[in-house]
Design a protein around this nucleic acid. Structure first.
Lengths: 116, 116
DNA sequence: GAAGTATGTCGCAAATATACGACATTAAAT
DNA sequence: ATTTAATGTCGTATATTTGCGACATACTTC
């Protein structure tokens, strides 16, 4: 029943947590950073760069692709993966809105003291 | 062996994914938003607000507390939970840096076309 | 001190995530 | 056509997450 209660939350909360889950593994963070650094982006290069098997990297890629954060285009024998910068920008805005909301509310006082 | 390979990634990547994992569940997003909206913050109120049992909410609270994103101070019989806005601001900066890096790199062309 | 109330912890069951080897698939090359 | 090379998919083992009831703890109140 692990995720049975997901539907009980706002679509906004679900959306944010979905993307957060995609970033919840260092390998997927590393993949996005690697795609951002390289101009050419071939799947094989990614697997060679990470300390994981090719199979595992492929799964992480599929997970990012499922959220449309990255896109893969078949180019002959290799696959060209690129970032969906448009979506990433929207996601960035969502996170920013969330953090601004979170940092403007009731806060703990300094030195672990609660202000209540 | 699930997380055996975590150590092979950068401390920066691990840090980002750790926080992302904390936000990877809508309940925890909702908890942070709720703490931000209320000026008074009592654990019992949170459990009453969410569509989850008190036990489960308590666990989510412990998870957020483990990362120091929220802090709880015992106030007699009740516990006062507040956001650690200082840390949240630092986390916000980390996410922003990540997204800026991600959105300034190689991108997919429009209409699913890769630019490679 | 007995009773009641607010929280945290433990233990369990079910669902997901992680990781990888073995196999399938597809396209280039000979 | 056969081989080679690059990827994706399947099956599987293990670890972690999620969710909750039952119990323990601690503090207040009577």
């Amino acid at each position: 029943m692990t995720y049975a209660k997901t539907a009980a939350f706002t679509e906004e909360q679900q959306q944010l947590s979905r993307v957060a889950k995609a970033l919840a593994h260092p390998a997927r963070v590393a993949i996005i950073q690697f795609l951002a650094s390289k101009q050419t982006c071939i799947s094989g290069d990614i697997a060679a760069e990470l300390p994981l098997s090719r199979t595992t990297v492929s799964q992480h890629l599929q997970e990012l692709k499922a959220l449309d954060l990255i896109r893969g285009e078949i180019d002959g024998l290799t696959v060209c993966y690129c970032l969906n910068t448009e979506l990433l920008q929207r996601v960035h805005q969502q996170f920013t809105a969330f953090f601004i909301e979170a940092t403007s509310g009731a806060a703990c006082g300094p030195d672990d003291a609660c202000a209540c």
